[in-house]
Amino acid sequence: MNILVCISKAPDTTSKIAFTNGNTQFDENGVQYIVNPYDEWYALVRALELKEAQGGNVTIITVGTASDDAVIRKALAIGADDAIRIDAPATDAYFVAMQIAEYAKGKGFDLILTGKETIDYNGSQVAGMIAEALELPYISIATKLDVAGSTISCEREIVGGMQEVEVQAPAVISCAKGMAEQRIPNMRGIMAARTKPLNVVAPAALEALTTFSTYSMPAAKSSVKLIDPNNLDELVALLHNEAKVI
């Protein structure tokens, strides 16, 4: 089974979020990048488990510049076989998805996996876009993934519950919590990652469909109002009369 796992870099979850250039650009100063947790913990680890059980190959792909190679090596250290970097800045979700679709076309991947969203732009867009571009079925926000022959079984989140579903490979699946457990790379993995193939591919000629014009920060909270733990009636009255939420 050949699996393509789409990987995005994302700022470490403890990063201080700030903007520069008149609030038009994310301030990368001092920011550590990690592999987007959903891509790493769920999509990549489940792909590796499937490969370990059934054989095959796990390729990771990202759209980005040379500065993303460190993040790619982290994903290789966890166990992917090889990596593709489409050599272009990731301008928007459409651009990224279409570059990946363009690369994947005709290469015979049985499964294309992504995380359910990135923790920076949170769009949850790339997987659906790849599926449409390649005219493949798409199971979104899957919490379980199994493969038997060409049948892919998943559990997916639906509004207000869960559903067990099946599709025929090839398919695109976005992966969420429940699918696998995080793996910490070991020394051998880290050493091996240094020499695994990282192929840099020229981008296709494509335009983004969206741009972020500016950014802003939420207004600071006024300080907390402390309530006597023995007077919950007061809290309920405040929630009703002052906050007007109940």
């Binding site: 928007d92 979700a93 459409y94 998805a97 279409m98 949170n122 769009g123 949850s124 867009q125 790339v126 997987a127 659906g128 876009m129 599926a131 449409e132 571009a133 798409y138 979104s140 926000i141 989140e157 639906i158 509004v159 469909l209 969206t210």
Partner: peptide, 20 residues
């Protein structure tokens, strides 16, 4: 959960930008 699955597909199909 439905919008997250369908809107990105429509964005590609219509080549229309998506505000997610």
């Amino acid at each position: 959960l439905i919008g997250k699955a369908v809107a990105p597909r429509l964005s590609v199909r219509l080549k229309a930008g998506l505000v997610a």
